[in-house]
Design a protein around this nucleic acid. Structure first.
Lengths: 351, 351
DNA sequence: CAAGGCTTCTGTATCGATACAGTTGACTTT
DNA sequence: AAAGTCAACTGTATCGATACAGAAGCCTTG
């Protein structure tokens, strides 16, 4: 059974292919009667409407935007910071009728989604520093918005004041009288290192570290330790936390890369018979939903992931519209604030 | 600046367009030297590789599969049952290099994603019974797999034994000696009703209700009440739960449509000074992550959402491959089990 | 009544690739 | 040396639509 195309219907009705196309896409270009007749025949033949791919080719627009995510797409559905961001993106996208396509940075089967999947523009979300997938997107020349990738001269970006937030977190502990402060951060993947051995630390990791260490340095405090958890999993958090608790002097305060790690830290403390915040103060980062689900609730640095998603999507949409109109837009760099939220896991240093 | 296409490069190198195409897509079709030369020129001109849309048109495949979701896509990122399912889908998709495109069932701006976005196949996931979006997908004739939509003769589907699971849930309470049992289910949207006023109850809702009521009927028990929460939000759960607790006789056991609703029920009980499970037994459904996060942990009916996602994706991939090979495949109907997991929210009926 | 203006259609070029069936020439084979 | 094989390219048709300029017919209008 051959496929039903515009031509099929045109032949059947006895009009030109253009009239059939117009019947679907530009109703004002033909008489009402003819349109009805064409639509009727189309229905009878089981024609579904213009083929999306063919239309995309000639119109130069697909109706979908992409999100580039580091290797495992699963992350997009498990990490609550990611789901908060993406949820906001799809909400913002809803009224526009655009669809969202998830793109892995991984190359599989000779297919590299960032290069081979058709999209009108893309958000680069949680992506390693030197990602070939990101490079492909850039080279394709489609509108792009970087999120959490650090500012980039030629490309619009949305970032959070990670450094300032981290600084505030450390300062909070200092203000509470803590002097033995440790840092629990996230290891950067070995794959992020350059050929030359230069360590490729993701923007967010680097900034937060600078913030913590900066505040400590300004106060003349040497961190007890900087420990890197190898991942976000509970086991990673537990391992790193245990390491921190065996230090001498044992830290009385810990600033953490994320709420998930902070929670792991709290649990480890409990397992070691320490109470939080009496014996140990813990500050998280993100203010993800887990921060308030825990008991006591987590003191943390709040970032507005919903706003981040909204803004990134808006910038992208504008860039796409401008691009379509042939008038490329000036890249914009936005930095969102990160604020301290004091809850139950921090208290004055034990004397 | 005109766009760089295969032809641009062909002209520059002085070969046919086909050789350039082959250089990218079928290396074995030309000599190594010429290929290198073409690739070099392509790089110099900033050619990114074959245009995905043009390639999709001629090859008839886009490299993306769709997921159709009811109205708000946000649901895909907030509901933990949905994220579990979708996470499993993307994991299963990863090795194939296929991208995942999220499709709303809503019609916006004259764009209906289910009709206008190019995909090689689609999963119909959480979708109202009479959805025009779903109809469009069907009419497009692309490979489809229904998930939780109930069996359908012409289309592969993956379902869970919701009725059996619900039956087990009610039976569990009966076995514990409960005789005053209430049902807390989810209201079906008014939009689901047909023009003729016939109520369009989503498959899952209908099946679970049949299971609960069936078990009760078999035991000769009349449910105290069947209350419908208007949504999954905390407030919806609270409202319905409060209603249940003011009944006379007050139920000693409640079977719930989901873990989220069950948890709302537990909280409402606590607010009313009742202890769970001593005064009130509660059974959830899904065994989502919230079931074990709560204190006490929720007795619930477990469904394997990961397996559901894996299986649905596998069926879809097979259907797409078969379709591409021109040998359409026989639709398959799969039903996954739903098992009782007894935890801390159920106990013998108070005497 | 010729000129101009609508409305309603149509013809042709184009979007950017790939499929497939040749063509060419060098190299074997007997 | 005629025939056959093979690697390396090329030419043309096609995928399924839309853009845009133009043609035909019918109404106004001065």
């Amino acid at each position: 059974m051959a496929r039903v195309t515009l031509q099929t219907i045109a032949d059947r009705v006895g009009v030109s292919r253009m009239s059939v196309s117009n019947a679907f896409s530009r109703p004002d270009q033909l008489s009402h009667d003819l349109r009805e007749q064409i639509l009727a025949v189309a229905k009878e033949l089981g024609y579904v409407g213009p083929d999306p791919v063919a239309r995309a080719l000639v119109r130069g627009t697909t109706g979908a935007i992409g999100v580039l995510l580091t290797d495992s797409l699963r992350y997009a559905f498990t990490d609550e910071v990611a789901t908060g961001f993406l949820g906001s993106v799809v909400d913002e996208l809803a009224p526009t009728g655009l669809a969202l396509t998830l793109l892995t940075a991984e190359d599989r089967n000779d297919v590299l989604p960032a290069r081979d999947i058709a999209v009108d523009g893309a958000l680069v979300y949680s992506c390693r520093p030197r990602s070939t997938a990101r490079d492909w997107l850039v080279r394709r020349g489609i509108p792009l918005v970087y999120v959490d990738q650090g500012p980039d001269p030629g490309i619009s970006s949305v970032n959070v004041d990670d450094r300032g937030g981290a600084r505030t977190a450390a300062q909070h502990l200092i203000d509470l009288g803590h002097r033995h402060i440790a840092v629990l951060t996230l290891a950067s993947d070995a794959r992020d290192s350059g050929e030359d051995g230069s360590p490729g630390v993701p923007h967010v990791q680097r900034e937060r570290r600078l913030g913590w260490l900066g505040a400590l340095a300004d106060a003349g405090i040497e961190p007890v330790a900087v420990v890197e958890a190898s991942g976000h999993a509970d086991t990673d958090a537990a391992e790193a936390s245990n390491e921190l608790l065996t230090l001498d002097p044992r830290p009385t305060g810990v600033v953490c890369f994320s709420d998930v790690l902070a929670l792991g830290m709290v649990h480890a403390a409990h397992r070691n018979g320490l109470s939080v915040p009496e014996d140990l103060s813990v500050v998280g980062f993100d203010d993800s939903p887990v921060a308030t689900r825990s008991e006591p609730a987590l003191t943390t640095i709040r970032q507005d992931v919903a706003e981040k998603g909204r803004l990134a999507t808006e910038l992208l949409r504008q860039a796409i519209d401008a691009n379509r109109a042939g008038a490329p837009i000036e890249p914009r760099q936005v930095t969102l604030p990160a604020e301290l939220v004091v809850r139950g896991t921090t208290a004055p240093a034990p004397s």
